[in-house]
Design a protein around this nucleic acid. Structure first.
Length: 152
DNA sequence: GCCAACGTTGGC
DNA sequence: GCCAACGTTGGC
């Protein structure tokens, strides 16, 4: 079992949006960063758990937990000229971008804020709080996962 | 809205 | 292969 953190802007797609989808499941499309893609494609397995993180908002932080419901498969928005994630250099017979399906597990009782996470010596090295980090998909070590949950 | 940090692109 | 220019992310 692996653990992850995935960022989303609540104004675009927040934890409540995930919870209200059919089967409480949604495709995680639109990832256009190679490192993030590689982690989704090569690392994520069905059943892995994910911290759902709200970025670019008043109080950035971890707001809930999700699970990987389907392992990586081609992201159709890459070959859809009408999508804002359209990538003309990705060929349908050789897809460049992938997505996973993510299913809602639960919301946290309260947001574990970025400020709080930054404050913890125990989380030194966590990719989320490394300087300049902008990855939208990143791994979380099991020990850190458990520690973060203990902050709830 | 500002801006630092980072990734990508493309000329050479 | 270098690197300047540009676009994006995301905290503040």
């Amino acid at each position: 079992m692996n653990y992850w953190l995935m960022k989303s802007e609540p104004g675009e797609f927040g934890i409540d949006d995930l919870a209200s989808r059919p089967n409480q499941t949604e495709h995680w499309d639109g990832v256009r960063n190679y490192q993030a893609r590689n982690m989704m494609r090569d690392g994520m397995k069905t059943g892995d758990l994910v911290f759902f993180y709200h970025s670019n908002c008043a109080t950035p932080g971890i707001v809930g937990i999700a699970r990987i419901a389907r392992e990586a498969y081609p992201d159709p928005t890459a070959s859809d000229p009408g999508s804002k994630h359209f990538d003309p250099s990705s060929k349908p017979d050789n897809p460049r971008w992938f997505m996973v399906d993510v299913q809602f597990v639960r919301k946290l009782n309260s947001t574990i804020t970025l400020a709080e996470l930054k404050d913890k010596q125990e989380l030194e090295g966590l990719a989320l709080i490394r300087r300049g980090n902008r990855l939208s998909v990143m791994p979380v070590e099991e020990g850190m996962w458990n520690y973060i949950l203990s902050l709830e």
